[in-house]
Amino acid sequence: MVHFSILALATSLLVPGVLTAPAAEPAVAIQRRFDGTAFNNWSEGGSNIRCVNGPGGSFTANWNSKGGFVCGKGWNGQGARSITFTGTYNATGPGYLSIYGWTTNPLIEYYIVENHADLAPNEPWTLKGNVTSDGGTYDIYTATRINQPSIVGTATFQQFWSVRREKRTGGTVTTPTHFAAWKALGMNLGTYNSVIVAVEGYTAKGGSGSSGSASITVQ
Rank of each mutant, 00 (worst) to 15 (best):
S5N: 14
L7F: 04
L9I: 13
T11F: 02
L14W: 13
V15P: 06
G17D: 01
G17K: 03
G17M: 01
V18I: 14
T20F: 05
P22T: 06
P22M: 03
P26T: 07
A27M: 12
V28R: 00
A29Q: 13
Q31C: 13
R32E: 05
F34G: 11
D35G: 05
G36S: 09
T37A: 02
T37N: 08
N40T: 14
W42Q: 07
W42T: 06
W42I: 02
W42L: 01
E44W: 08
G45T: 09
G46T: 11
S47N: 14
N48Y: 06
R50M: 10
V52T: 15
G54S: 08
G56H: 06
G57C: 12
G57V: 12
T60P: 07
N62F: 00
N64G: 12
N64E: 11
G67I: 15
G67M: 15
G72V: 10
K73N: 12
K73M: 08
N76C: 10
N76E: 11
N76A: 08
Q78I: 02
G79Q: 06
A80M: 09
S82T: 15
I83V: 13
T84N: 13
T88R: 04
Y89C: 04
A91Y: 05
T92L: 00
P94M: 12
Y96E: 00
I99H: 00
Y100Q: 05
Y100E: 03
G101F: 03
G101C: 07
T103C: 12
T104L: 05
N105K: 15
L107G: 09
L107E: 04
L107A: 08
I108D: 01
Y110P: 10
Y110E: 01
Y110R: 11
Y110D: 02
E114T: 07
E114M: 00
N115Y: 05
N115E: 04
N115S: 13
N115W: 09
H116K: 13
H116I: 00
D118P: 00
D118Y: 00
P124I: 11
W125C: 11
W125F: 09
L127S: 14
N130Q: 15
V131E: 12
V131N: 12
T132P: 04
S133M: 08
G135R: 02
G136V: 07
T137C: 08
A143Q: 10
T144G: 04
R145C: 00
I146E: 01
I146R: 02
N147G: 03
N147P: 09
Q148A: 10
Q148D: 11
F157I: 02
F160G: 02
R164F: 06
R164E: 02
R168Y: 00
G170A: 10
G171K: 05
T172A: 12
V173W: 01
T174S: 14
T175I: 08
T175K: 00
P176E: 02
T177G: 10
H178E: 06
W182C: 03
K183L: 05
K183R: 14
A184M: 05
L185V: 06
L185P: 14
M187T: 04
N188V: 14
L189R: 09
L189T: 04
T191S: 13
Y192E: 07
V195T: 11
V197R: 07
V197E: 03
V199T: 13
Y202T: 12
T203Y: 02
A204F: 05
K205D: 14
G209T: 13
S211H: 09
G212T: 04
S213Y: 04
S213I: 03
S215N: 09
S215V: 05
V218A: 01
Q219V: 01
Q219E: 08
